[in-house]
Amino acid sequence: MNTPPTAGQDRSGPGPGAITDERRRLVNIAYRLLGSLAEAEDAVQEAYARWYAMPPERQQAVEAPGAWLTTVASRICLDLLGSARARRERYVGEWIPEPLPDRTEWIGGPAGGGRAAPADPADRVTLDESVNMAFLVVLESMTPAERVAFILHDVFRYPFAEIAEIVGRSPAACRQLASSARRRTRAARAQAAP
Results as ranks from 00 to 15, higher is better:
R182D: 05
A30V: 05
G15P: 00
R186S: 10
S130V: 13
R24E: 03
P194K: 07
W51P: 07
A64W: 03
T3Y: 12
G13K: 06
R58L: 07
V138H: 01
A84N: 13
D128L: 15
D10H: 02
P99R: 06
L136V: 03
Q176W: 11
F150T: 06
R147P: 03
A116Q: 15
G113Y: 15
N132F: 01
G112H: 12
T143E: 15
G15R: 14
L78R: 06
P56I: 13
P65A: 02
R75I: 10
W68V: 05
E165L: 11
N28A: 10
R147F: 02
L33V: 05
Q191C: 02
A86L: 01
M142N: 07
E89G: 04
I151W: 00
A7K: 11
V62C: 05
P121R: 09
V137Y: 01
P14E: 09
T185Q: 09
V131K: 11
I29C: 01
M1K: 05
V72A: 00
A73V: 15
E146S: 05
F156W: 14
L136N: 07
E57M: 07
V155H: 08
A53I: 00
L136F: 08
S130T: 14
R23G: 07
S36C: 06
A119C: 01
R58I: 00
D154S: 13
E94G: 12
R24Q: 08
L80S: 05
P121I: 13
T20S: 13
N2Q: 09
H153S: 14
C77R: 09
